[in-house]
Design a protein around this nucleic acid. Structure first.
Lengths: 242, 242
DNA sequence: CGCAGGTTTGAACGCAGTCAAGGATCGTGG
DNA sequence: CCACGATCCTTGACTGCGTTCAAACCTGCG
């Protein structure tokens, strides 16, 4: 009786999860969710704590089920490059061979679903479609990185911040943003992280925000709440069209 | 009779290919090479010609079987970011969803093996291990890109060029370079491409080469032939250790 | 020999970085 | 409730690295 109950719990854990909707877990049928649940485990990480360390042996994959995390790499002298922000539905751990190629740190509390590599191996053996789904996810990530390399290598500070703002607009399920009307967004990460993401300094980020404000491209309420007043022009700036 | 002969030819085409050794084709058993050959086709592209266009529908994957190619993205005003150089054994086309996220152009003659997506789908259906191999390849690429983002976002011109030189040292099969003694390398790409790869201008690249020469870190014979006189120090510079 | 393309070098500029001070916001404790 | 300090953000003045603009220099080839 109790084992039934537990099995139901496990099933429920996955069936209501955001990963079920738009992460790799959607490669698995409803009837097999108990298997999925039995091969994974929930965990939470509090703000500022890191749960992946660059260079350490890669034992696990993660699905972000709530909250946000930043991914980054470090140079020996402390220079930091934030390589991405992860939120609900994102899949982490693909960028690794034996050891992780990046570190990950919670941005104010994040909940995760952990898949040990051995578990993932059992899952892909049983559900061949999952392996395909993982490749798809990797391809999507690779395409994003192409764009990010162009940003870091070739765009001006103005263009970088504009790109960042437009990126933050896409709704759930990574839908393309509608640019015709003002859009409100939240920036849950501190300026330092934005700077390290864009390959700039905190001062340049701050100055560029102020510039955009003076040009009536954005308006700022508090530090995290921003309204894009003219998303179309911001998008044009992001693409280097002015 | 002739069909047998043709089948043998196809088998031979794959069995002697470099892709057989260190590209995705090593996921397939010797006895199945004829299938592999029947799902792919050889092609060559002459120098300066492009064979993948950013934004165009992604129909094919490619294995580079000889020569070299550069991969890049463009901004509307012509600014270019070279995102990588491909050579024998490299697999192209993963960084795509519906359309390619980058362009590819031959660097002085390249030979390719083309796999239409439909063919690849048939192959992965028949050889499940291949799908895993593709993911592996994507993961490797993702890890490389993490490092390249750190280069573009955070490293100085000196550090970038040093990193580039060390990258060019790794032998076949992507072996880690031995840094104890001088290493000779070839740079088959023009300075423009190096600059666009490192997010610099051609002048800065040239100046930095001259600097390294004056510091006796490298010696230059002709334009393409370079000897790293002190690979260990160059490696240290690459990692931001001085 | 002379031209063309790519490369190197030089001089001046400008964007983003550095250094430094001043504000805003928030939590804490009196 | 306000004073205080901590933390993060903004603004200002100046510097410097890499860019820009321009000229000279190779090297291969007709």
């Amino acid at each position: 009786m109790s084992s039934f109950r537990s099995s139901d719990d496990m099933h429920d854990r996955c069936v209501h999860c955001i990963g079920r909707v738009d992460s790799i877990c959607n490669a698995i049928e409803d009837c097999d969710l108990a298997v999925l649940a039995s091969e994974s485990s929930k965990m939470t990480v509090s703000g500022g704590r890191s749960f992946i360390d660059e260079g350490s042996p890669a034992h696990d994959f993660f699905v972000v089920t709530g909250g946000r995390a930043k991914l980054f790499t470090l140079l020996p002298d402390g220079r930091r490059q934030v390589t991405g922000f992860a939120e609900g539905g994102d899949f982490l751990g693909l960028a690794a061979s034996d050891s992780y190629a990046f570190s990950a740190e919670a941005l104010g509390g994040v909940s995760l679903c952990r898949f040990p590599h051995a578990s993932m191996q059992r899952l892909t053996a049983r559900f061949p479609n999952l392996e395909h789904r993982l490749r798809e996810e990797a391809s999507r990530e690779l395409a994003l990185m192409q764009a990010r390399m162009t940003l870091l290598g070739r765009k001006t500070a103005r263009e970088r911040l504009a790109t960042f703002l437009i990126e933050r607009c896409q709704g759930p399920h990574r839908a393309a943003p509608v640019l015709k009307q003002p859009i409100e967004i939240d920036l849950p990460m501190p300026r330092t992280d934005i700077a390290d993401y864009l390959g700039l300094t905190i001062e340049t980020v701050s100055r560029t925000f102020s510039l955009f404000r003076r040009e009536k491209l954005i308006s700022v309420r508090g530090i995290t709440h921003i309204t894009l007043l003219d998303p179309e022009r911001i998008s044009a700036i992001a693409d280097g069209m002015e």
